[in-house]
């Protein structure tokens, strides 16, 4: 199977690739937001812990 055939998806390229595109965007957003929120949480808690220790 050639690469062109693969991307053409037997004439259904628009449908197949947009379905996969949406899926990847949604999955990526899920994991991206989760990791960003984890980092933010840890940073905030560390900051709070640091300021408590100084007092």
């Amino acid at each position: 199977m050639s690469l062109n055939n693969f991307f053409a998806m037997g004439g259904y390229a628009t449908y197949v690739w947009s379905a996969y595109g949406i899926s990847f965007i949604v999955l990526f957003l899920n994991i991206f937001l989760a990791v960003r929120n984890e980092r933010k949480t840890i940073d905030e808690l560390k900051k709070r812990l640091g300021s408590n220790n100084k007092q």
Partner: peptide, 8 residues
């Protein structure tokens, strides 16, 4: 029946 569209 559905060709490559079934890959969805």
């Amino acid at each position: 029946q559905q060709g490559d569209s079934f890959r969805i």
